[in-house]
Simulated assay, not measured.
Amino acid sequence: MRDTSAQNISAQKKELRRRMTVIRSNVSAASRREQSIVASLLAENEVLSPLRKSRGGRLNVFCYVSFRDEPETLHLIQTCLKRGDRVLVPKVISEERKLTLHEMSNVNNLSPGVWGIAEPGEDMPQWPTLRYTEIDIIIVPGLAYDRCGGRIGFGGGYYDGFMEQISSIQSTGLIPIKASLTLEEQIIPGRIPMEEHDFRLDMLFTASGIIYI
């Protein structure tokens, strides 16, 4: 039986998800697009470009493909492709509750997958799990964030599982930066209720500036 503390955190998360789903959906499409583009430009200028220089050029960038009222990631993805980065995008394997990563060369090769989310087409090669150690930066989705690296998603556990995979094979090599492209409205004033399996972010890309954790 789960203890009272765990039950309280679960209840807090449920309420936060309910509230933030409404808040995010009320952000206008124009504001979401503008914030996403400005945040992506800041991410490129302040984080990605210096990271390329420090790591010898091409980056391995893992980035989700935005869906519905999520911050739009295609501008960031296209910028990375233009800069010569290797861009990896996720595919949901719902029956196994996991993600697979696929190398993307063109945004036009995406097609609707699970829940209608744009996913890699059949021609996009899968990135081997053992090469996850080569990823330089991971950009994940979320519903809400705090300024201490706390994040909450929809509760499916796909990205928690992915981060566990990363941790289990990260005995050598560089530790990837964990970040999110974030609307201002998604940042809460307090703290995200966190459980043991939840991971924290290193930075948030927002239109008003990069938040370094």
Results as ranks from 00 to 15, higher is better:
Met1Glu: 13
Asp3Tyr: 05
Ile9Lys: 14
Ile9Asn: 12
Ala11Ser: 15
Ala11Trp: 01
Lys14Gln: 04
Lys14Phe: 02
Leu16Cys: 01
Leu16Ile: 08
Arg17Trp: 09
Arg18Val: 05
Ile23Met: 10
Ile23Glu: 10
Arg24Lys: 13
Arg24Ala: 04
Asn26Ala: 15
Val27Asp: 06
Val27Ile: 09
Ala29Ile: 09
Ser31Trp: 13
Arg33Ala: 09
Leu42Cys: 01
Ala43Asn: 04
Ser54Thr: 08
Ser54Glu: 12
Arg55Lys: 15
Val61Thr: 03
Phe62Glu: 08
Phe62Leu: 15
Val65Phe: 15
Ser66Ala: 08
Phe67Lys: 02
Arg68Glu: 15
Asp69Pro: 00
Glu72Thr: 14
Thr73Asp: 02
Thr73Met: 06
Thr73Ala: 13
Thr73Phe: 13
Leu74Lys: 01
Ile77Asp: 02
Cys80His: 01
Leu81Val: 02
Lys82Cys: 05
Arg83Phe: 08
Gly84Met: 03
Asp85Ile: 09
Lys91Leu: 06
Ser94Lys: 15
Glu95Trp: 04
Leu99Asn: 09
Thr100Pro: 08
Thr100Asp: 15
Leu101Asp: 06
Ser105Gly: 13
Ser105Pro: 06
Ser111Val: 12
Val114Lys: 13
Gly116Asn: 06
Gly116Asp: 06
Ile117Arg: 09
Ala118Gly: 05
Pro120Glu: 11
Asp123Phe: 01
Pro125Met: 07
Pro128Tyr: 03
Thr129Pro: 11
Leu130Thr: 12
Arg131Met: 12
Ile137Cys: 07
Ile137Ala: 04
Ile138Phe: 10
Ile139Cys: 01
Pro141Lys: 14
Leu143Gly: 14
Asp146Thr: 02
Cys148Tyr: 07
Gly149Pro: 02
Gly150Leu: 14
Gly150Thr: 12
Phe154Trp: 03
Phe154Gly: 12
Gly157Val: 05
Tyr158Asp: 04
Tyr158Gly: 08
Tyr159Gly: 00
Gly161Thr: 01
Met163Gly: 04
Gln165Arg: 08
Ile166Pro: 11
Ser167Lys: 03
Ile169Phe: 08
Ile169Arg: 07
Gln170Asn: 07
Thr172His: 01
Gly173Pro: 11
Gly173Cys: 14
Ile177Asn: 10
Ala179Val: 07
Leu181Phe: 09
Glu185Leu: 02
Ile187Lys: 00
Pro189Thr: 01
Gly190Phe: 13
Pro193Trp: 04
Met194His: 11
Asp198Trp: 05
Arg200Pro: 06
Met203Thr: 04
Phe205His: 04
Phe205Glu: 05
Thr206Ala: 09
Ser208Met: 02
Ile213Asn: 07
